[in-house]
Design a protein around this nucleic acid. Structure first.
Lengths: 131, 131
DNA sequence: GAAGGCTATATGCATGTGCATTAGATGTCC
DNA sequence: GGACATCTAATGCACATGCATATAGCCTTC
C-alpha cells in the first residue's frame, strides 16, 4: 500500500512540475518570440537533427503531439515563414518539412529563453526524487 | 554546457512522461467512468481532505488548473451531480464545494482505474533518472 | 491493370484551456 | 456613510488539442 501512495505522490509531482514549467515556457516563448510551446518544440526537433529536412512522420515519432496537432503546428509555422513544406518526390504522400533561414534564426533566439526558463523552473532531479 | 544538455534532457523526459501518462489516464477515466482527468483530480483533491467541503480558493491552491478552468470543472461536476456548490455565509463571495454521495462513489470506482493506469504507465523514478 | 487494402497527411468538429473582463461582496479611509 | 481599492468566482473569447474522417498516393493480388 505504501507503494501505492508513493505512486500517487510521484504522479502529483509530475503533474505539478509539468504544468508549472510548461506554463512558464508557454508564456515566455509567446511573449518573447511569438512561438507557442508546441511550435518551439517542433522547430527544436526539426533543427536538432542534422538533416535539414524531415518528414512529418519522423517528426511525429519523437514528439508528444498527436498527428493532427503536429500537422497544424507545422501549418502555423509555415504561415509564419519559419518552416517550409515540400512534397516528397519518392513517395508523394509524404511531406518534407524544413526550417527556413528565418526559422533557424527564430529558434536560435528562442532557445536562449527556453534554457533560461528551464534553469529557473525545472525542479532538479533530486527535488523530484525526494519530494 | 553539459549541465545545459542535462537540463534539456530532463525537460524532454518530463514532457514525454507527462503526455504519455496524462493521455492514458484521460482515456481510461473517460471511457470507464465518464470523468476527464481534470474532473477526477478535482474530485480527488476534494475527497482527500478530511473536511467534506472546501472553498474554490483552497481547491485551486493545490491544483494545477487556472481559476477559470477549475470553475468550469466544478460546474461540469455539479451538472453531473457529483458535487454540490453552496454559498459561504460568512463571506458571500466564496463558494463551498462538496462531493455528493454519487461523487464519492464515482471517485472510489475511478480511483481503481487511476491507480492501475499509473502502475502501468508512470515510469519509475529510477527510469526517469537514468533516462 | 483494376480492386481493395494500407499509409501519410489534412480537416471538421467538439471540447477544455488560459487570459481578460465582469459581477458581486468586503474592507478601508476620509 | 460614500467612494474606492481589493477580493472571489463566473463568463466571453480565441485558440490548441484529440478523435474520427476525408483525401490522396502507394502496393499487392488476381
Amino acid at each position: 500500500m505504501t507503494s501505492q501512495a508513493a505512486l500517487i505522490d510521484r504522479w502529483r509531482t509530475l503533474l505539478t512540475s509539468y504544468n508549472e514549467v510548461a506554463g512558464q515556457l508557454e508564456r515566455a516563448l509567446q511573449d518573447g518570440h511569438g512561438l507557442s510551446l508546441s511550435e518551439f518544440e517542433t522547430l527544436d526537433r526539426l533543427i536538432d537533427a542534422d538533416c535539414e529536412k524531415r518528414r512529418m512522420q519522423d517528426l511525429a515519432a519523437d514528439m508528444y503531439l498527436s498527428q493532427s496537432a503536429l500537422s497544424r503546428a507545422v501549418a502555423r509555422l509555415e504561415k509564419s515563414g519559419l518552416v517550409h513544406r515540400a512534397l516528397c518526390e519518392a513517395d508523394r504522400r509524404g511531406v518534407f518539412v524544413r526550417a527556413t533561414e528565418a526559422g533557424i534564426r527564430r529558434h536560435a533566439e528562442a532557445r536562449q529563453t527556453h534554457r533560461a526558463v528551464l534553469a529557473q523552473y525545472l525542479p532538479a532531479t533530486d527535488q523530484v526524487r525526494k519530494r
